[in-house]
Amino acid sequence: MTRSSADGMKVTVLGCSGSVPGPDSPASGYLVEADGYKLVLDLGHGTFGALQRYVDPAEVDAVVISHLHADHCIDLTAYVVALRYGGEGYRLRGPDRRIPLVGVPGTRDRLEAAYDPLARKLGLHELFAFATPTADELGPFRMSYAQVAHPTPTNAVRIEWQDRSLVYSGDTGACPALVELAEGADVLLCEASVAPDEDLVPDLHMTGRQAGEHAEKAGVERLIVTHVPPWNSPQVAADEAAAAFGGPVEIAAPAAEYWI
């Protein structure tokens, strides 16, 4: 059955491997769509290639970056090359057509350094309209953010459309701010990086059980575990989460589509 935006928000997984791209998945990246609006949420290693399966890069309406670790942002450098040098489907059209790029303070400097030390002279501001996160609207979406527990400034993101809501944890250790942001959400897309037999470093990443505990405390409807590195088992993370959360638990997979 063909579905449309009338059925809700559509989330397509561009990549979900934790920390590095894996043999079966790029690193973190998601495409969120409703009412014809296309929002890219994180753009880690390999995700720009996956993005092109679903949308012309020039037709993306906005990009939101949770934080500046490479597995969540480094493919912005590929995006710059495509927008600057690509042909039809890659070139921005219109006299003031720039893609809003929302990220923590320092996002532009990080992109300039990763792309080319001379990038400031190459005019990245002509491609992206840089902004810091604020509770505001992006197209049809109501956006809100919470700083979570990670070594570099990192935002969890809540995206609301009509009466539907998606919360993305970004990278985080156990964090009350994530529970508060996710309260009552339809879906929590939550990292579960740490295996049960690994040392748990505070304020870095979470286990599957902790992802389930956060979902349970927030009272969300569904939990999707993500950001499991290739040396760990997504199924173990999901089983751990299910032991702590009373609702449905799913495992993010590359190219998977979720309707919210």
Rank of each mutant, 00 (worst) to 15 (best):
Y30E: 11
E137Y: 04
E137M: 05
G89I: 05
K38H: 10
H69F: 13
S25G: 07
S19E: 11
V102T: 10
R97Q: 11
H67G: 14
Y90A: 14
P57Y: 01
F128I: 04
S144C: 02
P140I: 05
P133I: 02
H150E: 13
G89K: 08
L122K: 08
I74R: 14
R84P: 11
Q52N: 00
G44F: 11
A70L: 15
I74M: 14
A114C: 05
M143W: 10
V40E: 04
A50N: 04
A50L: 00
I99P: 04
L41H: 11
S19D: 13
Y30M: 14
L127N: 11
G36W: 06
V20L: 13
D35Y: 04
E59V: 07
L92F: 02
H125E: 10
G123Q: 08
A78N: 13
P26G: 08
S144R: 07
V63G: 03
R97T: 09
V63K: 01
L39R: 03
E137G: 09
R84S: 15
A135Q: 08
A50T: 13
A149T: 06
K121R: 05
G86V: 05
R120V: 11
I74A: 15
G139V: 03
G49S: 08
G29N: 07
V148W: 05
Y37E: 02
I65F: 12
R91M: 06
P151V: 12
H45E: 15
G86M: 06
R91P: 07
R91F: 02
